[in-house]
Design a protein around this nucleic acid. Sequence first.
DNA 1: TCCTTAGTTCAAAAGTTATTGAACAATTGG
DNA 2: CCAATTGTTCAATAACTTTTGAACTAAGGA
Lengths: 118, 118
Amino acid sequence: MTLPHPNTDQISLPIVLAVLGDPTRLAIVRYLASKEGVALNCSQFLDLGSKTNLSYHLAKLREAGVTRAEVVGTNRMITLRRTDLDARFPGLLDSVIAAAGDDPALPAVGGHDIEVPA
Amino acid sequence: MTLPHPNTDQISLPIVLAVLGDPTRLAIVRYLASKEGVALNCSQFLDLGSKTNLSYHLAKLREAGVTRAEVVGTNRMITLRRTDLDARFPGLLDSVIAAAGDDPALPAVGGHDIEVPA
DNA sequence: TCCTTAGTTCAAAAGTTATTGAACAATTGG
DNA sequence: CCAATTGTTCAATAACTTTTGAACTAAGGA
């Protein structure tokens, strides 16, 4: 059970830009970048929308070649395709993430870190 | 008669990405980047669409803060806001233009350079 | 096996964006 | 002044995107 992903050379610049132009998806990418190397399941993003809506946005990111989704049991483990994106569009992802980094107007994942009791 | 433009600090990342995610507008930006320093009027882009449609796309680019339009007689002279974009989102424009540079699938302006007669 | 968890799919509704042609405005040159 | 040039605005339409809830699938644990 593997999900469809474009090859690196099939990743299209306008599609990637359009996909990153949505605030919800930009927030997902930002969060993935901040947890680089860690595979996250969809539930990590429930701050950003309903389960159904996230399924939609995560599919867009995957189909554009921005993320990879690996099926592990009932989970889809999501990672950024950083190596592929850097190969295809050098510097693009870094500049987008850096640009998003200091913008307080953007939505963000967070607010449900595990609380350490007192 | 000046047209409305956002200030540099009002330029929004998701809006810029969404605006650059349209192939017609990406082609306009590419062409402006290739003629940096030269102000072009709208007619230069008629390869890419009808007059009305270009008016629409050029307004989107201007309102997003990607281009500047200066009224000169009956012309709107269009330039890339490179300095402002570089200040706001360092490296972004360069990586987008570089990424677009080698993609033959993208539309491009061209085909009506002034021919030098033999 | 049955229940829960994780996520998808589907169809509908709502909202947004792109494209078109006709009409309009403003400037310039004759 | 008149005509041509440059580009905008408007209304309509077409096309696409986002969001929603209900129904569904598939795996895992009790």
